[in-house]
Write a protein that binds this DNA or RNA. Sequence first.
DNA 1: CCTTGATCTAGAGTGCGCTCTACCTTGTAG
DNA 2: CTACAAGGTAGAGCGCACTCTAGATCAAGG
Lengths: 137, 137
Amino acid sequence: MVEHLSIGEIARETGRSIHALRWYEAQGLIPGVTRDGGRRRVYRQAHVGWLRFLGRLKRTGMSVGDMKAYAALAARGGATAGEREAMLTRHLERVDGEIAALAEARRLLEVKIAFYAEWGRSGRRPPDPEIPPELRS
Amino acid sequence: MVEHLSIGEIARETGRSIHALRWYEAQGLIPGVTRDGGRRRVYRQAHVGWLRFLGRLKRTGMSVGDMKAYAALAARGGATAGEREAMLTRHLERVDGEIAALAEARRLLEVKIAFYAEWGRSGRRPPDPEIPPELRS
DNA sequence: CCTTGATCTAGAGTGCGCTCTACCTTGTAG
DNA sequence: CTACAAGGTAGAGCGCACTCTAGATCAAGG
């Protein structure tokens, strides 16, 4: 197990570009990156897990600013565990709201698709309150 | 029922800014907007429904480019109904993928929250493969 | 030495989806 | 006639999250 990784290695392992990793670090998202004799970045194996976690936060729509706040708390150690839990809990609620909104929009999309299906089936345009008359042939 | 609306009125009814409406139109998202004697935009009541529909497409992550393509099909009339149905069906599949990805990320978020809850309950940090050692106090 | 490949820093550029500014025209009321 | 609100156009600017460029440096191999 290679404990120390170069930026190129961790880029490959986490699917990020080298540029993105440097940018993340500049934004304060990656605490604990050290340097070798030649001022090159040295990552630890644990950073792979951290970056995957950041990826999850990102996929759930967390902003870079919020991730930075979370990283700053994490860098301050165990004393901030409660705050981090609260942050994630608030974020989870936002995610639940997003999922609900997406599900609702999805439902309405299905209604529209059903409208087109009925049109194709019957050969006659069913009533639809959404398409302006000038968009109908 | 007021059939004709000014840009200010439709902005109020649809929750868009006047600027955004003009920009949408410039992007080709709002076919069928006419002008009055003074070159002012005239919207029809049906445009309210159309804008709400665009809002749903947007909330599900559809790009302006795809909305433009959809609007162009709609403007060509009933002959394109099949293509529109296909577009929406493909988009619905993308939305399902998004919802699934969000649900999965949400699940992992819950695992992390449970980790913090256990930490708080036991007073001892449970094992966690994601936080780099230098982020632990 | 010299070259090669990886990395470094600072900063410019990109794509998306608006948002805002500047300045001009139009319709209505006093 | 004047004032004023609403609307018009063209185009610059913005926030986000990267992405890329330019030019310097460094370690290892021939």
